[in-house]
Lab assay of single mutants.
Amino acid sequence: MLDDRARMEAAKKEKVEQILAEFQLQEEDLKKVMRRMQKEMDRGLRLETHEEASVKMLPTYVRSTPEGSEVGDFLSLDLGGTNFRVMLVKVGEGEEGQWSVKTKHQMYSIPEDAMTGTAEMLFDYISECISDFLDKHQMKHKKLPLGFTFSFPVRHEDIDKGILLNWTKGFKASGAEGNNVVGLLRDAIKRRGDFEMDVVAMVNDTVATMISCYYEDHQCEVGMIVGTGCNACYMEEMQNVELVEGDEGRMCVNTEWGAFGDSGELDEFLLEYDRLVDESSANPGQQLYEKLIGGKYMGELVRLVLLRLVDENLLFHGEASEQLRTRGAFETRFVSQVESDTGDRKQIYNILSTLGLRPSTTDCDIVRRACESVSTRAAHMCSAGLAGVINRMRESRSEDVMRITVGVDGSVYKLHPSFKERFHASVRRLTPSCEITFIESEEGSGRGAALVSAVACKKACMLGQ
């Protein structure tokens, strides 16, 4: 009897593995994704193909990295998701002549009506938060230079001027797309009239992360975010950046690689679950690469896999709870928690219980395998993109072996128990001629924006502006 049951459990697990095998990517698959990513990057950089390229390769006008001589107080704003952060950054000489960066910050959550109302409502709310922060720190009387981390696709015309191309991540505030974001912020500050600010720089969160990590390690020339969304930036040779005049030196390019796949480059790798996630998203047909990796989508992918296993009578005796059938019910943090389970399955059992399920031991094991399959594919897909960037940098610099540091931020990278190990191992397999160091950014977005502002202020002083 026991043997029969054991055989049935083994057969069930084997069927589960057959279904989950769809998520496995072979090294040849990853090399294919990497080569296609490089081709799209090239198209994004070139003037004649930029418009139709899915990977936009947006110039950021960040050319210099901090040298350690900029000092002063800077205000930093960070808008990239449902939370908005205001930070005071003091850049100065530390002990023994070292450079020191001290920060104080406060988080504000953005109400739904500000995210989806008008641009005026959104930026009025942001300036209200700045006003509140300055009151708390008794700094209303000071006109501070301000660095703005704005983590949406922007076409820069200068370091302090950028046109919002399109909202992502659930934002829909009308009247912002096609307009200068810094102008919208300046107008809102003017409307309030109770404080003055000098907006000197606007950067993407990947750029802010790279600059913040450069402060720790001067070989950091790539910034990457794996959180709600997924994106990367890197220092490109100016001669390859056709959208900006000049051939000397390097400029940081914001790849906006989340949109890779929007022209069909990933079609052969998309599964039924991916198509369902895409169809029910706020932007169907867009940001397809990001939807395979980002935390906004990972939990939902797992939920759809679990429903398939229920329908195949391989999980929960073929019956799903009402909660499990509800879109968004299986949160991405559950994926991390399930994979963090120590082996007694308590954590998995508790999560499934909150979803109205009474799982068996085998159910718990199957749910864990589903989570591992989805998150491992995410790590491997992400590795193909980064390997594409790094191999490109090595080739354009004609280096036999390139040493490089990548600064990384984002909740999936930082909080998932195995993502970074799987990701690092896969990147290294795909970049055999590179020695890569990964560092995690601390308060990256805010500190990085302030350091970019410090560079901009120093330049302005040198130019006598």
Rank of each mutant, 00 (worst) to 15 (best):
S433K: 13
G44K: 01
E67L: 15
I351A: 10
G94F: 07
V200R: 06
V203G: 01
V277E: 04
E421F: 10
M57C: 14
I126L: 06
V154P: 01
D365Y: 06
P153A: 05
A53G: 01
K15W: 12
E331A: 13
A450Y: 00
T149H: 02
C364D: 09
V338A: 08
A425Q: 10
V86H: 02
L164Q: 01
T82K: 05
V452I: 12
E52S: 10
E443S: 07
E196N: 00
S54I: 10
L184E: 01
R308I: 05
P66L: 14
I126Y: 05
A188M: 00
G68A: 10
G175I: 02
N204R: 00
E28V: 09
I436W: 04
A114Y: 10
M202K: 04
L304S: 08
S151F: 00
W167M: 03
R5H: 05
L355Y: 10
R368Q: 11
Q323G: 13
P284G: 08
I159R: 01
S383P: 05
E237H: 05
L164H: 03
K169P: 02
L292V: 10
D247V: 10
L288E: 14
M197P: 02
I130C: 01
G170Q: 01
F84W: 04
K140G: 05
V16G: 10
R358H: 09
T49E: 04
T228I: 04
V427N: 04
W99V: 14
D29Q: 00
F152R: 01
V89H: 02
N254P: 02
I225W: 06
Q24Y: 13
M402H: 11
C252P: 10
K31I: 09
K143S: 05
V207M: 03
V91R: 09
Q24G: 12
Q323M: 04
T82H: 03
V86L: 05
K104N: 07
D135F: 05
K31Y: 11
R192C: 05
G170V: 01
Q24S: 12
S445D: 00
E265Q: 00
E242M: 04
M238A: 14
K56E: 06
F330I: 13
V335E: 06
K458S: 14
F334I: 06
G407W: 02
G328C: 05
R394D: 04
C434A: 09
Y297T: 06
F84G: 04
M238V: 12
R394M: 08
V401F: 09
C252A: 14
L2W: 11
M393P: 04
E128W: 07
R43G: 05
F269Y: 06
V181Y: 00
A53I: 03
Q323K: 12
D363P: 02
I351L: 11
F148E: 04
L122S: 01
K143C: 07
E70P: 15
D158T: 04
I293A: 04
V89S: 08
G178L: 08
E395R: 11
Y234P: 03
S353H: 05
V253N: 10
A188F: 00
V86P: 04
K32F: 11
T65R: 15
R36N: 04
E67R: 14
S212I: 00
K102A: 10
I159N: 00
D344Y: 05
C457K: 11
T116N: 09
E48L: 07
D365C: 07
M381F: 11
Q106S: 11
A454V: 07
H50C: 03
S373R: 09
C434P: 08
G117E: 04
I126T: 05
C461P: 15
Y125R: 05
G175H: 04
R46A: 13
F269N: 12
G227H: 02
E245L: 12
V16T: 11
W257Y: 13
E221L: 15
H424K: 08
V16P: 08
V310K: 15
F419K: 05
P111D: 12
E96A: 12
C457L: 08
R36T: 09
E435S: 09
R392H: 14
K104C: 11
D409S: 06
V452W: 04
R369C: 11
L134Y: 00
G446S: 15
R36V: 08
Y125T: 03
V55S: 03
E216C: 00
E40H: 00
V374S: 06
G92L: 06
S131N: 05
A450S: 01
L451A: 00
T209P: 00
I130R: 01
C230P: 09
P359K: 09
S396L: 10
C371W: 00
A201V: 09
S212Q: 09
A188Q: 01
R369H: 10
A232F: 01
V338K: 06
A329F: 10
K39T: 08
R43N: 09
F334A: 12
G446K: 02
I293S: 02
Q347A: 11
H218F: 11
N179R: 14
L430W: 08
K172R: 08
G295C: 04
E399I: 14
D274Q: 00
C252I: 15
V367T: 13
L75A: 15
D113H: 11
C434L: 10
S174N: 02
K13M: 15
I436N: 03
D267K: 05
T255V: 00
H141V: 07
S445R: 02
F419I: 02
A450D: 00
T362W: 13
Y108E: 02
S336Y: 05
F150D: 04
R422Y: 12
E177G: 03
S373V: 13
F334H: 03
R43S: 09
Y289M: 02
K140M: 07
V89F: 06
P359M: 10
E27M: 14
K12C: 14
G318S: 08
L243Q: 13
S375M: 08
M139P: 07
H156A: 03
E52R: 10
L357E: 11
I293E: 09
E372N: 09
A387F: 00
K161V: 15
K136P: 03
T405I: 07
F133L: 05
R369G: 08
S64Y: 15
G261S: 02
G94R: 11
Q347M: 09
D194V: 03
N313W: 10
V91Y: 07
K32P: 04
G178S: 05
F84I: 05
L146P: 02
L134G: 01
F195V: 12
D124I: 00
E435T: 11
Q18C: 10
N231M: 00
F438M: 06
F152H: 02
T431F: 06
T82S: 09
L88V: 08
V222A: 01
M235L: 09
C364A: 09
K140F: 03
V89C: 15
E67V: 15
E120W: 07
D42M: 11
V71C: 15
G343T: 11
E339N: 06
Y125H: 10
C233K: 01
D247C: 09
I110M: 07
L47I: 09
A114W: 09
G193P: 06
L184K: 02
C382P: 03
M393R: 11
L184I: 12
E51W: 10
F423G: 05
